[in-house]
Write a protein that binds this DNA or RNA. Structure first.
Lengths: 234, 234
DNA sequence: TCGACATAAGTAACATGTTACTCCTGATTC
DNA sequence: GAATCAGGAGTAACATGTTACTTATGTCGA
């Protein structure tokens, strides 16, 4: 997304810890609900508690984990309502962003999009949910970058942290990789045609469809998915 | 906004420091561009460097101040482009929020809105820009609360931190308090009628008009306000 | 007058120490 | 057996110590 912008500057221990925790959540080192402590994590990473604490505070702000005073921290799976709220934000921001991306994209950008789209296709064939989610994320990130609003990019990336685990388990359960993949095709082709309106509408259809999928996955006994959807998205 | 939710829990030193810095920026204790240090601020607040540092890190993430390694931190005024980006986000989120607020508001909510609207009117008469901005912020906050999406509320509040100073100087210079006040009237009346579409459209007109005002204020010699607007908002 | 260069002051980033809290565990009582 | 309570283990929040860096300042040679 924003890789080589400040050339040299090595990442701080805090930043490295943030990435380490993100990875740990992705690959199952940190299990949702379990209690962990700054002491132990600092030991395992070979750094002091300060940068670890700073990293956790930042991640806690995005909602992907919760810090409990004098107890520890734990990874939290978003509930149905939180997911609906997040999808509402994504729709509000990513739909216009897709429109703008379509209007601003150059041929070289089309190439980058195609690379990710094809990687997604490969992941579908291979049945690799992790890879699928990775390239899905990159494709959405590319579109946001094209739209040229760094604030929007940052907001969406933070929200994604909170939902990644749900996305993974949803994909694993529903076996609908191909379905989700197909939703991206009209987005990409609209961008290639430079058709802003169509790109926005395709993005909206994709996010609404995927959002409902995620919501059903996360919903508990007493969550009325349709009511939540109506309250926050419609 | 979200006052009495966890009854007792006294605010941590970090939280108190965040508020102290916010206040300091508002009332001119911290001047944009000037360098300040964690050491000194911790002394002045009578706490250690840890909570102060944590507070500054959080505020730096919202963009209202920048931390410079081994130098200090400084309050930053957003440039024209950043302001345009922020207004694009506000439009994308607050317009649908106003629609939802109109559909969900109860009579008691109408009362709360009226209180803030009247306070704004008083501030116009008194020519008190500070009070005007405060109640303007509260009115927007009420509408966001009514829309029921806590993520949206949090995002907008963070963005506001970064723009408050520009808003203040704009109001002081342009003497257009009354104009901005009048833009809120159709929003409030649409909410009272329960007319979601009208509320959204009134909010859009307000944000676009105010956004252009802020942009002109923040624009430097080589900023093309209209081009920025076209790229990010239209 | 001007520029190279040592020196020192000041700082964020990181490490470590301290405190007050939460919760578990197990003994004690009824 | 169940309820109560003391003690201790473990922790986040906060305080303080250390390090490596950046920059201002002044000295000296051309």
């Amino acid at each position: 997304m924003s890789s080589v912008v400040h050339p040299g500057r090595p990442p701080s221990l805090t930043e490295r810890t943030i990435e380490a925790v993100r990875d740990g959540v992705r690959n199952g080192t940190f299990v949702p609900g379990e209690l962990y402590s700054v002491y132990r994590l600092a030991d395992e990473l070979g750094v002091s508690r300060s940068p670890v604490r700073e990293a956790l505070l930042r991640l806690a702000e995005t909602g992907m984990l919760a810090i409990e005073r004098n107890r520890g921290f734990r990874v939290v799976l978003p509930g149905a309502r939180e997911l609906a709220e997040i999808m509402a934000v994504r729709i509000a921001l990513e739909v216009p962003a897709a429109s703008r991306a379509a209007r601003l994209a150059k041929p070289s950008d089309h190439d980058s999009l195609r690379v990710e789209r094809e990687a997604m296709q490969q992941a579908v064939v291979a049945g690799d949910e992790g890879a699928f989610l990775l390239h899905d994320q990159r494709l959405h990130g590319l579109l946001l970058d094209l739209a040229g609003n760094a604030h929007v990019t940052r907001i969406i990336e933070n929200l994604r942290d909170a939902t990644r685990l749900v996305g993974l388990s949803t994909m694993k359960n529903s076996r609908s990789l191909d379905e989700v993949y197909r939703e991206h095709l009209p987005i990409v082709s609209a961008v290639e045609r430079g058709d802003g309106r169509a790109a926005g509408e395709a993005m909206r259809r994709h996010l609404e469809s995927t959002g409902r999928l995620l919501l059903r996955e996360a919903a508990g006994e007493n969550d009325d998915v349709n009511a939540l959807w109506a309250e926050l998205i419609r």
